[in-house]
Nucleic acid binder design. Structure first.
Lengths: 222, 222
DNA sequence: TAACAAATCCCCGAATTAGGGGATTTTTTT
DNA sequence: AAAAAAATCCCCTAATTCGGGGATTTGTTA
């Protein structure tokens, strides 16, 4: 059974080459080609695709909007974005809208077919640079310039915490309870409490949450 | 200039076959192989890799921890995870830790080399099923509203908190106790508790400290 | 209309944390 | 050597948080 592909793209040339590619390859069938998404629901209903190739830049309803509509009406149809540009907003918006893949228009024909299969099989093909962007969304904004104080001067925001106290504060920031910290640091529960009291004194706080907030915001712990 | 690859994997056989593959292919050089990550900083320092292949399941320091350490010390080295399993937690944790790729151990040798090149060139190769999971993380917080927030960097880590929940989380981060939050928000103590329970569910945490740390680190509250 | 999310409130018991006292043993500094 | 700081441990009481249960009202969505 051939994989049914429907394409939305306002570029007629692109549409033609994709038709040749898809209908000319065994195992693939071009179920429908459309120059815009103004009737996307109808178009999908009619063509009954397994996979949709969707351009982003289109007059009228754009590709992002179209994905939303499609995924709402036909959640089982997988949509792969195919676009010339890859700015952050588009990538992110497309994924949030429910796209299952995101490839660039310079992708080689053979690779496009591979991607269609991949999407059909439940994968999420992405062009390398897009994949990197996607991971970027998930990765926390890391500290860039990472050596502010290698000097011998004590950090003013250090609050004179002892090494052990910093260690315990670090555990706290990771979400550990006193009991867990005790185990982690191989000391008794009561010792943890003692340290905590001292930490509170030095930080001028009176609860775990305040201590954690201060520790993170003032970068007392890494 | 060959791409320098360092591998961390506690499976000796895997290490051997990767050595043969990498050192036997022009354009690649195996810079170092290590059975664990207990001295990861030293190992990386010594071997000076362009790309690191990192197993997750390892005795002692595991692959996720190791990525964090590596990215902190050597932010320019790209790390690709290679593991037998692909449970959600690992994938997510690895990416958050700073991994630049995530492939499964059943990946074909030729493809592994491709992935190394891709990582080296700034891409993020992922096995199809992993890529789908990654997109899933981004799609999870229910379809983003009608207006695609294109102004700033998209906040991925919104966790679908309601306005009131965000308000309460903000209070928490300021160090308030339940009682203080209740007064501040003009609601009863029990209502604060209810909101807190829901916040914990959505954030996947189980204590105030964890919630505060997550809220600050992931910029859920400003 | 029915189903759902959001926001509000309540109770119980168990676990955890806070604040107030201590004390002893190492290190480090003066 | 004496003083100070750091790290370890203990007890008691009060306050707070956590994890289960609920429930009601008000909107919005399907």
């Amino acid at each position: 059974m051939a994989i049914r592909v429907t394409v939305f793209d306002d570029n007629k040339k692109m549409l033609d080459s994709l038709s040749v590619l898809i209908d000319g390859t065994p195992g693939f069938h071009m179920a429908g080609v459309f120059l815009n998404c103004n009737n996307v629901i109808n178009d999908v209903q009619q063509s009954q695709p397994d996979v949709i190739l969707m351009d982003i830049e289109m007059p009228g309803v754009d590709g992002i909007e179209a994905v939303k509509i499609v995924k709402q009406k036909f959640p089982n149809v997988n949509v792969m974005m195919q676009t010339a540009f890859e700015n952050d907003e588009n990538v992110f918006a497309a994924i949030c809208a429910g796209a299952s893949g995101y490839i660039l228009k310079n992708t080689l024909p053979a690779r496009i077919l591979e991607c269609i299969v991949e999407v059909y099989q439940g994968g999420s093909p992405m062009s390398p640079s897009v994949a990197r962007k996607v991971l970027g969304f998930l990765q926390q904004p890391k500290q860039a310039g990472a050596h502010p104080d290698t000097s011998e001067q004590p950090n003013v925001n250090d609050y004179n915490l002892s090494p052990r106290e910093k260690e315990i504060l670090t555990c706290l920031v990771k979400g550990m309870s006193y009991k867990m910290i005790a185990e982690n640091c191989n000391i008794s529960y009561e010792t943890v409490r003692s340290h905590m009291k001292n930490i509170y004194d030095k930080l001028h706080v009176a609860s775990m949450t305040e201590a954690v907030a201060k520790a993170i915001n003032q970068k007392i712990v890494s």
